[in-house]
């Protein structure tokens, strides 16, 4: 499956906004907003994001990939998704 990186960013942004920031006050999401280190996503919510990415882009996460290195902001997530799709 091929996907445009900007498209991925928009899709993920929409998901994060809807799922994790629906009622959050004053939190504006951009591509570099820290999600894990900024406290928007924790271990449980990270798994929701993982399931969403797996289902949307049809690839499988490995346990060690659920990490700040791959999920900390939308830019990083999009880069990771592209890497997985190209693997």
């Amino acid at each position: 499956m091929r996907a445009d990186i900007n498209e991925i960013k928009e899709t993920v942004k929409a998901f994060v906004n809807k799922r994790f920031l629906k009622n959050a006050e004053g939190k504006e999401l951009n591509y570099s907003t820290p999600l894990i280190s900024g406290g928007i996503i924790d271990s449980i919510l990270a798994m929701q994001l993982v399931v969403f990415l797996e289902q949307t882009y049809r690839f499988e996460f490995q346990a060690h990939e659920v990490d700040k290195d791959n999920l900390d902001n939308i830019d990083i997530i999009a880069g990771f998704v592209v890497k997985k799709l190209n693997a």
Partner: peptide, 21 residues
Amino acid sequence: RRINIYWRNFVLKIFFYPTMF
């Protein structure tokens, strides 16, 4: 989330995610 964060991160990394997967 708040108490002994290092321990929690260790447990998440080594046990939680591998178990969940």
